[in-house]
Design a protein around this nucleic acid. Structure first.
Length: 648
RNA sequence: GCUGCUGUAGCUCAGUGGUAGAGCACUCCCUUGGUAAGGGAGAGGUCGACAGUUCAAUCCUGUCCAGCAGCACCA
């Protein structure tokens, strides 16, 4: 038998017979390690302790202390244990797949009746029994025909389909614990008892399409979370509770920012507080765009279908558009219009008026464009995914050679704005050519290269999402994460040679001939609605002072201070601060509590003492202590704090 | 759009086949109180909408609407 050399993390090299398992390697080092071992990394790949190692490799033995592999194994094995538990309780349920995901796993089942919350309790109890049984786990490599026979005999159509999808030549591995088996590539723990029985929880059931395809059957997906021990599980549950407190839908109500109601699903009734946030942000963006070399325009809401036919939206986007039929006088047929779902076709109309010269390029045309999209009902989510929204949209008409510089300029523009708004953790995705696309390979190479170079030149990195680009060109997406870890695309930068072509945009080049411009679609915040939602969650409602709708509340401690309260408010308002008086007949405790819950950044309390001394007692949101300051000093200081960062 | 769940006062939620309750919020009164809920009284609901079953429906059934969790969608 041939020998192989395994290199350990400390640089040691040991020699073993080829085919040695990680379990044997661990045993050769120390009995304690053999006992603690759960898996190994072999040349970076995650290996089951029982798999043979056939060639020289770098190896390290994993124990429960290695969080990533430990969690992977625990969650993975729990998926199998759950599937077994379900089949033991309901033998006719068909099993499908059950991958590991953030914080846990899920498994999809095919069953007539829905799983109920009580069922989850029953499944959990059964899982604990399986764990307590400490059934040994074994993996076998099966011949394809045998596996097909087996699943045919058992009547597991989904497994048969999975087998079909395993490429010829790849091992078909069967995973066993007790009498139960599942098709699985592993790796696994050595026995079910290695899974902590008190550190997992089944969380919820939801529908999910088989293989993610909406034309396939809908299965029932059971989600679970799992950790290495009870404390980690508890910490996770606490984290979820904290995240729920940041939910913009809850905070939006508590801060009296907006509401929604069923007569206008997916649309927002902005209250005075919310509209203050909105307009503050919009004013800020308008200043930024002016500085950034944009011109601002405004275009119609209701546009005849003829334009949408030309732009291609009518054939590609119609089911997402609000169609408006108008019975015009004297017209033989109804006129069909659509609310604009995007601003781009209208911007091209402006570009197309008059002749444009190469000297006009790049032409950066911005609009706070109100759009209406008939989003699927199940997609609606608070103010983050709505049917009526306003984009901070712009289209840059330019030449191909200008793409890279414009992209770099935009990334810098966006970085500064995100920083001003308190966002420092965001990612850039580069979506490249999809399968269905137009344009030459050279033009794709060029555009993708220009975007990639621009990101690097602006000092950022990007992740590539192959095939995720639009059919006409690649794009950059700027992604922020919400309170419970969901990603939201906000900024975007897309290269589009298609729409200028369709809508016949052109400019006169240096050579005196007509040329086709490239159009760059770009948005920084994305939509004000979504961005405000993220802003609320990011700051847990404690918005930066300059954005907060009510910046200062001046509260009287005794009604004898009311006149002074009004004087302080008047001075603050005159200095440009959004200040309000609270002279209600309530105790100061009550007022402090209420305005703290309402997320007012600064409360100024005034009583006899402050009236006498012409001071205020200043308390900041989230702080216990207050400080007494001279009114003459406080007004300019707060005015400064309340000023948008670009105006300081 | 699909699967499941939910819809009772402004908010959070009890509850019942015989047309409804709590706490907070709101209004008024008392209280003038020093940094996260002072006390009392009062007002407030077509029990999501529409059908059906029933002597009787907020409760049972059906359809629809909306919300929630996922999935799909998100040029």
């Amino acid at each position: 038998m041939s020998q192989i050399s395994l290199t350990f993390p400390d640089g040691n090299i040991r020699h073993y017979d080829a085919g040695v398992t990680a379990a044997e390697v661990a045993a050769s080092i120390a009995p304690s390690l053999a006992k603690a071992a759960i898996s190994a990394q072999v040349d970076g790949a995650h290996y089951d302790l029982a798999w043979p190692i056939n060639a020289d490799a770098a190896i390290s033995i994993n124990t429960m202390k290695d969080a990533a592999p430990a969690l992977e194994l625990i969650r993975h094995d729990l998926a199998h244990i759950m599937a077994r538990a379900v089949q033991e309780i309901w033998p006719d349920v068909k099993v499908t797949i059950g991958p590991v995901r953030d914080y846990g796993w899920f498994y999809d089942f095919d069953r007539e009746e829905p799983f109920t919350p009580e069922d989850l309790g029953q499944i959990e109890a059964k899982m604990k029994q399986i764990i307590a049984a400490r059934d040994a786990v074994k993996t076998e490599v099966w011949d394809r025909n045998r596996a097909v026979e087996y699943y045919r005999g058992k009547g597991e159509p989904f497994k048969l389909e999975l087998l079909d999808r395993i490429p010829e030549g790849q091992d078909i591995r069967m995973y066993w614990h007790g009498d139960w088996q599942d098709l699985c590539r592993g790796p696994h723990l050595q026995h079910t008892g290695q899974v902590p029985a008190d550190a997992f929880k089944l969380t919820h059931v939801a529908g999910a399409y088989w293989l993610g395809d909406s034309s396939r059957p809908m299965l029932q997906r059971i989600y679970g979370v799992a950790f290495r021990n009870r404390d980690e599980l508890k910490a996770h549950m606490t984290m979820l509770e904290e995240a729920a407190k940041r939910d913009h839908r809850k905070l939006g109500r508590e801060m009296d920012l907006y509401h929604m109601q069923e007569e206008a699903p997916g649309q927002i009734f902005w209250h005075p507080n919310g509209w203050t946030v909105y307009t503050t942000l919009q004013d800020y963006m308008r200043r930024q765009q002016r500085r950034g070399g944009y011109v601002e325009v405004n275009t119609p809401q209701v546009v005849n279908r003829v334009l949408w036919e030309k732009s291609g939206h009518w054939s590609n986007y119609q089911e997402n558009m609000f169609i408006v039929e108008v019975d015009e006088e004297h017209a033989r047929e109804k006129t069909i219009n659509a609310l604009k779902p995007m601003n781009c076709p209208c911007h091209v109309q402006i570009f197309n008026v008059g002749l444009k010269s190469y000297r006009d390029l790049p032409l950066r045309m911005a609009e706070f464009g109100s759009c209406a999209r008939y989003e699927p009902s199940g997609a609606l989510h608070g103010i983050m995914r709505v049917r009526g929204f306003t984009q901070d949209d712009a289209h840059i008409f330019c030449t191909e050679a200008q793409i890279e510089a414009e992209a770099k300029k935009f990334i810098e523009f966006l970085s500064n704005i995100y920083a001003d708004l308190g966002f420092h953790n965001w990612r850039i995705k580069l979506s490249t050519r999809p399968e269905k696309r137009i344009g030459t390979e050279e033009s794709w190479d060029f555009a993708e290269g220009a975007l990639a170079n621009a990101v690097t030149a602006a000092g950022h990195s990007y992740e590539i999402f192959p095939g995720e680009g639009a059919f006409y060109g690649p794009k950059l997406e700027f992604v922020l994460t919400d309170a419970i870890g969901r990603d939201w695309q906000c900024g975007t930068f897309q290269v589009d040679p298609n729409l200028p072509e369709r809508l016949d945009a052109s400019y006169i080049g240096q050579d005196g001939a007509k040329h086709r411009p490239i159009m760059l679609h770009r948005a920084t915040l994305g939509s004000f609605e979504r961005f405000i939602g993220i802003l609320i969650e990011e700051h847990a409602g404690k918005l930066p002072m300059w954005i907060a709708p009510r910046q200062v509340v001046v509260a009287s401690i005794t009604s004898e201070a009311d006149d002074y309260v009004n004087e302080v408010v008047a001075q603050l308002v005159a200095a440009g601060v959004r200040a309000e008086a609270d002279t209600r007949n309530e105790k100061i405790n009550y007022k402090v509590r209420e305005h703290s819950l309402g997320k007012v950044p600064v409360i100024l309390a005034v009583g006899h003492r402050e009236v006498e001394e012409r001071t205020v007692s200043l308390r900041r949101l989230g702080e216990k202590n207050s400080e007494v300051l001279a009114l003459a000093d406080v007004v300019p200081a707060l005015a400064r704090e309340a000023t948008p960062p670009d105006l300081l």
